[in-house]
């Protein structure tokens, strides 16, 4: 039964049940199926590759621990994504307590007109986002890519809405400055 589990691109809920039943093959199948997508999320929230791997590892441990809590309401992938975003936020909190978020007031200047975004590859964008200070990166990811509102972000990160807005604005400015530098090179 377990050895015949095939995912073929479409995730089977039976695999979740098999994982809960403690079947090692099912657990590995679940990891293999989702690890690449979840690692993409982790890479966006982490400052480097190794931190992303740490988040991925922590996230999957959480997934296996809470697998029996998944009721089948909504998509399983959506449930997984939320776990990984929350795990990333936990890492953000740890980073914030370790060192204060770097304020980059100096980057408030230029507009977006002259930016040549098309010239940049995914790798470059990832590098740019990873170079952002933790607070900027987290807010930018949540607002710009995930689509959360400032109110939701404020609640998730335990900050005020005003802080969320200002962090986003500064993140954008930092990104613009870094893109300009890349284009000049």
């Amino acid at each position: 039964m377990v050895t015949n589990l095939q995912l073929n691109g479409v995730f089977d809920m039976d695999i979740v049940q098999a994982c809960i039943a403690g079947k090692p093959h099912a657990q590995e199948a679940l990891y293999t199926h989702f690890s690449q997508t979840m690692f993409g999320i982790c890479l966006r929230y982490a400052s480097d590759y190794h931190s992303a791997e740490d988040i991925l590892q922590e996230g999957f441990v959480k997934v296996f621990k809470n697998l029996d809590r998944f009721r089948g309401e909504g998509s399983f992938e959506g449930w997984l994504k939320r776990i990984f975003v929350n795990t990333s936020i936990e890492f953000y909190r740890k980073a914030v307590t370790k060192r204060k978020v770097v304020e980059l007031d100096s980057v408030y200047d230029q507009g977006t007109e002259s930016l040549a975004l098309d010239n940049l590859a995914t790798k470059d964008l990832l590098r740019i986002i990873q170079q952002l200070p933790t607070g900027y990166r987290t807010v930018f990811n949540l607002y710009g890519i995930e689509g959360y509102t400032h109110k939701e972000i404020a609640k998730m990160l335990d900050i005020s809405e005003g802080t969320s807005k200002s962090q986003l604005a500064r993140a954008r400015e930092s990104i613009k400055k870094m893109i300009r530098n890349l284009n000049e090179q």
Binding site: F39, I41, A52, E53
Partner: peptide, 9 residues
């Protein structure tokens, strides 16, 4: 570019 980013750990 990064919304559906996938990478192999």
């Amino acid at each position: 570019e990064l919304g559906d980013l996938e990478s192999t750990p």
